[in-house]
Design a protein around this nucleic acid. Structure first.
Lengths: 268, 268
DNA sequence: GAGTGGTCTAGACCACGTT
DNA sequence: ACGTGGTCTAGACCACTCA
C-alpha cells in the first residue's frame, strides 16, 4: 500500500457545509479551505488539490483520498469535485483507475532525449503568405510522393521561396494531388497561403499535419535563393498535411534558415 | 449571422425520448441516432457530433444548435450532452462562448512554418540511463548559466556521453545548482538517469522542461566522442528543466546525432 | 461485499450577450 | 426579456477491484 493521506482534512467536514462562521479554532488548526466568491468552486478545489500535490503533501505515486472523503472535506457535491479531479487528470497530474482509486502521477520527464509528449512551436518572425514561385507544374507522383499522399495520380509540384518582411527565410517544394485542385497553377500562389487558397477555391479544409525535423545544410540551390552561404545550417522539414476528413492533401519538403528560426518544445 | 443548422435533427425531438419504435418514415429520413449499448452515451454523442463536423454538415465558423436542442435531439440530460461538448472543446474542434453559443472552430493550421501548438516527440532508439562521465566538477555559474538557472551560486558541471545499446548517440553538458545536490559527484552517474537520481537521493522532483532545438554540425570534440565525422549533422538542444514547484534545476546543452534521431511534430 | 471511480438524470440558479 | 452557456446539487445505477 502506498502512502495514505496524513491528515489535515479530517479537521473540517461532516458538519454543516458552507459555514463561514468564525468559531475561533482552539488549536492552530491548518487553514482548511475558504471558498472565495466569484471563482468557480471546482476551480478553487483544483487549485487547492494542486497545491497539496506540488507541496509534497501527497508525494508521487501516493493514493489520494476517495471522492467521498474529498466531497465531505470540501463540502461540495460529487459532480463539482469530479470536475476538479477531471481537470487535474487532463493536466496530467493525477491518474484515476476505476475500482482502485486516484493516484498522484510520477513525473514522466525522462532524463534522456526520448521524452513524453509535449507542445512545440516555432520561434521566429512570422512568415508572409505566398512567396516567389520557382516552379509549378503537373508531374506524375514518384514512388515516395505517392506513398506519402496515399495516391498514385498526377500531382502539382510547387516550389516556392518563403519570405518574412522581404527577406527569404525558407524554400519549399509541395506536392498536391491534382484531383483536389484542377487548376492550381492559375491561382494566386504569390501572395496567398496555400491553406487559404485550397479552402476558399477548392473547399479543401486542412485539419492536421505531421512534420519530421532534421538538421541540414544549405546546398548551392538553397543558398542562392535564401541568400546564405553554402553549408549554412538549416532545418529540413518533411511534412504531410491532411484534410479534416483524414485524406493526405499535401506532401512538402522544406528548408528553413537555422540562424533565424528555432524550435521550442515544452515538456511536461 | 453565420450559417445555422440546415436540418436533419428536427426530424426527431420534442416527442418521447428513447423511442426506438419503427414508425416507418414516410420520407427517406436520415438515420437519427441509435444508441449502442456498452459505450458511454457522452462518447457516442461526441462521435456523432464529430462526424457532423468533419462531414461538413456544420462548416467551420458555423453556430451549432444550442444545448437544449441537442439534448432533446439525442434524448439525454444536459450533463451528458455537456460532457460530449466539453470533450470536443478540449480537442479543439468547437468553441463555446457564454451567452452567445457554440461554434465550429476554423482550422488553425497555418500554411507557413509558424503554426499552432502541437505535440512532439523524438523518433529513434531509446537512450540508456547514465553514460560515460567525461567531467563532473564544481564551478561558479557563468552569466548565461546563472540566468538560465535563476541563481548565482555554485553549480555542478556534468558532461556525459549518452548511449543506446552500446553506441554513442549524444553528448551533453548539464549544469545543476550545488545546493540541490551537495555531493552529486559521489553518485552513480554512470548508470542512472539524472532525474531518478535527483529524485531518489535529493528529493528533487522534475516537473517540466523547455527545449530549444537548432541544427548543428559536429566539432572535433563531439565527433571523437560520438564516433562520427567532423561536420556531421547533429541536433543542438538547449534545455532547462524545472522542479514541480517551478524552480530551475538543470540547464543543459546537448548534441544528438542527426542521422539516428529526428523530431516528429504533430500539428492540429 | 464493501469501496472505488464511471455514468447519467432532473432539477436549480447564475452571468453573460443579444434584442 | 430572453436564450445562451457555466455552475452546482442530490440523488441513482453500474462495472470494476480487492480483501
Amino acid at each position: 500500500m502506498t502512502a495514505r493521506w496524513g491528515g489535515g482534512i479530517s479537521s473540517l467536514d461532516q458538519t454543516s457545509k458552507r459555514t463561514y462562521i468564525d468559531s475561533v479554532p482552539p488549536s492552530p488548526a491548518p487553514q482548511p479551505f475558504a471558498k472565495r466568491p466569484g471563482v468557480a468552486l471546482h476551480h478553487q478545489i483544483k487549485e487547492d488539490l494542486f497545491h497539496k500535490l506540488r507541496s509534497g503533501e501527497w508525494p508521487p505515486g501516493a493514493e489520494m483520498p476517495s471522492e467521498h472523503i474529498l466531497c465531505t472535506h470540501y463540502g461540495v457535491s460529487r459532480g463539482t469535485l469530479r470536475r476538479a479531479l477531471a481537470d487535474l487528470v487532463s493536466d496530467g497530474y493525477v491518474e484515476r483507475h476505476s475500482g482502485r482509486g486516484t493516484f498522484v502521477c510520477r513525473p514522466k520527464l525522462v532524463s534522456g532525449v526520448t521524452s513524453a509528449y509535449s507542445r512545440s512551436s516555432v520561434v521566429g518572425p512570422a512568415v508572409d503568405p505566398g512567396g516567389r514561385v520557382l516552379l509549378c507544374r503537373r508531374v506524375k507522383a514518384d514512388r515516395h510522393v505517392a506513398a506519402m499522399l496515399q495516391s498514385r495520380g498526377a500531382v502539382w509540384q510547387l516550389e516556392r521561396v518563403r519570405f518574412t518582411d522581404g527577406q527569404a527565410i525558407g524554400l519549399q517544394t509541395s506536392f498536391i494531388p491534382v484531383v483536389l485542385c484542377p487548376d492550381l497553377a492559375k491561382q494566386d500562389l504569390q501572395s496567398k497561403h496555400l491553406v487559404d487558397l485550397m479552402r476558399d477555391i477548392y473547399g479543401v479544409h486542412f485539419g492536421s499535419a505531421v512534420e519530421y525535423l532534421d538538421p541540414g545544410i544549405a546546398d548551392s540551390h538553397v543558398a542562392r535563393h535564401l541568400g546564405i552561404r553554402v553549408n549554412a545550417l538549416v532545418f529540413r522539414i518533411e511534412r504531410t498535411a491532411y484534410t479534416v476528413d483524414g485524406r493526405a492533401a499535401e506532401y512538402r519538403n522544406a528548408v528553413l534558415r537555422g540562424d533565424m528560426y528555432r524550435y521550442r518544445i515544452e515538456l511536461r
